[in-house]
Design a protein around this nucleic acid. Structure first.
Lengths: 367, 367
DNA sequence: CTGAAAGCGCTTACAG
DNA sequence: CTGAAAGCGCTTACAG
């Protein structure tokens, strides 16, 4: 009887009542509930049967107040990452529900809000653990305090090398390998003048992708690069791209977006200016969003669900440790480049627009 | 000092300590915290100042155990609706954080899991209220019990007419108006043979959209319709569409998807068979997903954030009521059809494929 | 292996 | 307006 869960004769069930029905004490019932080994098999069986029959679930507040497990995990994320966040939360929820825990998901409204949410949970005792998804860079100015409840970093590659964060469990994305392979692919396709649309600049992963782009460009004599800032979402990316196109003498060979939505913004701008993709310019994104495959967008597949599962696994591992260990676990998730239509010149490139090399070459000769 | 929030000399703060510092009693501090009017302005000011200075936040478990507010709202949703769910949660979170509450989001793994999650929270006392997002049809076989904590239905239009659910607050989508306008638009464009890809059949909204399609087709003498079942997501929609195309004598004039992802599945299948959109066949979706505009998909815009806000508003209204009222609030959200490229034949329709009317007409004459 | 008792940090009648 | 006290439902030393 689903409707009678946790109720008996219309009254909410308590340990006390279960104990009475089982002809034992509250202590023993509690021991059964917490899997305490100091209960005889026979007693355990009898008590468990009553518990099961009535669908009894202990009051979480009493439990939490007593300082035991609350069965709640706080997940702090950002609305801007909603696509990734939805996948990650799915993965976490899978693991959490296997551990009889629920997710308390909070969307931060900005870096400061993110940090104050984190600190509140870190000391508050409201949850058993915290997962920080793509936290703002600013969080690294703070540190994990000795008394904090367990925390796992998710999608914040590199944070572990920072003072005060080295002992924190983390699952990070291998942005650099994936980004480098996309860049190499573009160069192979004949691209020499690349533009990176930076997206939000305040997460570690965003920063890492931008840095990777810059280093790659610097390491290649034959490649020129430029970073366009403040292209955080589809519309801003479209606007930034339009502005860029209006002030540039030559159209670049490729636009790389911080993520797929930014790439789509660039595609819209290019379409608006009548510039063909991929004939005139290549475009790539990051994330492999739902429709990326359909529109043939070259991108990097990010296995969000798997990442969420792993983050939750690390957290439960930590939570279940008897005593504090000096171990910090770090999982690096490999990402898969997806080369698609927007960056492929199958039949040789047919370009109407002048290349940068031609223009600058001409200018060089003229000068 | 962010790090000192809720701590004083390294110890977690309690009412007791605040009372000591303020030179008053726990009772009075508690009264200040709960906005009890029975406190002198001077005392209130003094206590509040200490609270603010130390960033004191009362222990939620003690509060919850005592039977007062817990500051937590449970949101139960389904992974399949992830796009919609992400938007809705954003809206709820905006309202919740204004009310100093957090969202406990649970993803149900199936109808039974959904229902048992709901019942657990309904009687459990873990949260102050529940929002059910797009619950499975099966939930209507159960009913809201008298002792249940407040619940708000979200995206479950029509449930209110069911026994045991009439007194529940709800925010629903006006699926019928939107769907009808899309259907009328398609007919205006010359479509006569329509196929609806049903998607998941186990939510009220999905059911309602399918029903609306069937009724429309039945009400029009000149229109033929067919429903394809079990097209729940992009890949299944693609497969169902391919199967359909392989067994049909004539290609329909339009495919309507239960949502945008289903529509994209259909688009993929059509592309795979070399059938042009919109020249040979029109396609429409539902939701107005992130990339729908970019790919020119005709769809219905669903304002998820706004819907989430409204659901949370209704819930807080209910929670803040002193005594139980006999009022049930119902907000209906209007949806906006977005007519785009996939259903527009601007330059007159140029069709390579035979129309159903032609084929069946020929068959009729032959018989 | 089992039970009686203390106590977690609040709120709210109750008494003044 | 204010304070002392009871009690919410658990868990865990403590004693047997």
């Amino acid at each position: 009887m689903l409707n009678n869960v946790n109720k008996h004769n219309g009254k909410r069930l308590t340990l006390h009542q279960i104990a009475e029905m089982a002809g034992t004490s509250k202590s023993t019932v509690s021991r059964v509930l917490t899997n305490d080994p100091h209960v005889s098999p026979e007693t355990r069986r009898r008590v468990q049967e009553i518990i099961d029959r009535h669908g009894f679930r202990p009051n979480l507040f009493a439990r939490g107040l007593r300082g035991a497990r609350t069965g709640q995990i706080a997940v702090i994320g950002r609305w801007m990452e909603r696509g990734f966040l939805a996948d990650v939360i799915k993965g976490m929820d899978m693991v959490a529900s296997r551990n009889d825990a629920h997710l308390l998901s909070c969307l931060a409204h900005g870096p400061d809000d993110y940090i104050s949410l984190w600190r509140r949970f870190a000391v508050g005792g409201q949850v058993d653990g915290i997962i920080l998804v793509a936290p703002p860079l600013k969080i690294l100015e703070h540190r994990v305090e000795p008394g904090d409840i367990p925390v796992t970093l998710c999608a914040c590659h590199g944070a572990r090398s920072r003072k005060g964060w080295s002992a924190v469990d983390a699952v990070s994305l291998d942005n650099v390998s994936a980004m480098t392979r996309i860049l190499e692919h573009l160069v192979e396709q004949g691209c020499r003048y690349l533009v990176y649309l930076e997206g939000t600049a305040d997460t570690y992963d965003a920063r890492e992708r931008a840095l990777c782009f810059q280093r790659f460009v610097e390491s290649r004599r034959d490649v020129t690069g430029e970073v366009v800032k403040d292209a955080t979402w589809r519309d801003t990316a479209r606007m930034r791209t339009l502005e860029f196109l209006d002030r540039t003498a030559v159209v670049p060979d490729a636009f790389l977006g911080y993520n797929d939505m930014v790439a789509v913004g660039a595609l819209e701008a290019l379409r608006q200016r009548g510039i063909r993709v991929p004939e005139d310019v290549a475009v790539s994104g990051f994330d492999d969003a739902d429709m990326a495959e359909f529109i043939g967008l070259t991108t990097v597949h990010v296995p969000g669900v798997l990442i969420g599962q792993e983050a939750a696994r690390l957290l439960f591992l930590r939570m279940n440790e008897e005593e504090e260990t000096r171990i910090a676990r770090h999982t690096v998730v490999q990402l898969t480049p997806k080369i698609r239509r927007t960056s492929l010149f199958e039949h040789g490139r047919q370009r109407r627009l002048p290349r940068r090399s031609e223009v600058s070459g001409a200018a060089g000769r003229a000068g």
